[in-house]
Simulated scan of single mutants.
Amino acid sequence: MSSDSIEVTAPEALLDANLSFPEETPLIRHLTMTRERCVDPTLADSFLRLLRYGSDDSIKQRLSAYQRHEENSPFKNKRCGSFLRNELYPNWQARNRIITFCRNQLEDMKAELDEKYGQHSATPLKAEVDLRIDPYAAKDRQHEQENRYKELKRLNTWIENQIKIESILLANSNRTLQQNCDQNVNYINEFWKFHRATR
């Protein structure tokens, strides 16, 4: 069973005043993720858009900012390392936490629905209501069941889309980092090491 909510905060470096965001991008700095926010991911989408734009979509701009701030250090060393530790990896980690949380909620929801509506349900309709008193109960239950499974399907589609987007962005960022930092490093693998060490 997953937890009911998680708190996710945009990395401080992302909020650099020198980085201009598109007009339509709301600056959400902190997000409390709940099951409801997974099922209706409007806020999660805005937050993910902010994180993605502030890092992967402007990675060359961000690397240049680190180059200006650390003029005396070799670009491929300290500057890239600072960018990765302070900005990019915490950003990827925040996005991963949101998607993982919603994936866990999806699994919990599926288990709950299967238990309630599955063939081996512990609460058959007759135990819930006498059909002689409410002849529409069976139809209402069927309607509720269909809606719940549609909700589940929408959430599953959203999660799959987010995973695909992340995969593309991380691959593109990895290529950009190899061009501008150390070409022999797989920065995605390094992120997972960072993630395991800091969670």
Rank of each mutant, 00 (worst) to 15 (best):
K76S: 14
Q183R: 13
Q183D: 15
Q61D: 10
F194N: 07
K116G: 00
A122Q: 12
P74S: 14
Q61N: 04
S167W: 02
Q145E: 15
K150R: 13
T100E: 14
E71R: 07
Q105D: 02
R196G: 06
Y89V: 01
D57L: 10
M109F: 01
D57V: 01
C38D: 12
L50V: 01
K150S: 11
L84Y: 07
I6S: 06
R49K: 12
G81N: 15
A94K: 05
R49F: 01
R35P: 02
H143D: 14
F191I: 02
I6C: 03
K139S: 12
E112W: 00
D108V: 03
H69R: 11
Q67E: 15
L88Q: 10
N18K: 13
D45A: 07
T157Q: 15
E160C: 00
E112S: 10
Y136I: 04
Q142T: 05
E70H: 14
M1C: 08
L106V: 00
S121H: 05
Y53D: 05
N172V: 02
N147Y: 05
A111C: 01
D108I: 03
Q162H: 04
R95W: 01
Y187G: 08
R196T: 04
D130Q: 06
S55Q: 10
P41D: 12
L169T: 04
Y53K: 00
E24N: 09
N86M: 04
L48N: 10
Q142E: 14
E151Q: 13
N172C: 02
E36H: 06
E128S: 06
E107D: 13
R103S: 15
A44T: 06
N161E: 14
L169S: 13
S167D: 08
L43R: 08
E146K: 11
L155N: 09
T25Y: 01
K126G: 09
G81S: 14
H195I: 02
R29I: 01
S2R: 11
N184T: 11
H120Y: 09
R52N: 09
R154C: 05
M33T: 02
Y117R: 03
P90L: 03
K164R: 14
M109E: 11
N91D: 06
I99F: 04
I59N: 09
N18H: 11
Q105C: 06
R37K: 13
K60I: 08
E151R: 05
A138D: 13
P124Y: 06
R103V: 01
T34Y: 09
I168D: 13
K164P: 04
A44C: 07
C181E: 08
L14R: 02
R95E: 14
Q145I: 03
K164L: 10
N147P: 00
V185F: 10
S2F: 04
Q93D: 12
T100Q: 15
N180I: 03
L15D: 06
D4N: 11
E23N: 04
R154E: 15
K116I: 01
G54C: 08
C38M: 07
N184A: 11
P22R: 10
L48W: 01
K60N: 12
L27Y: 00
I98D: 09
K110G: 09
A111S: 08
T157G: 06
L19I: 04
T198N: 15
E190K: 07
D45R: 09
W158V: 00
V8F: 01
Q105N: 04
K76F: 12
N172L: 05
A127P: 00
D130F: 01
R196F: 03
N174A: 07
S5D: 11
C181S: 03
R35L: 07
E115M: 05
T176H: 04
E128M: 09
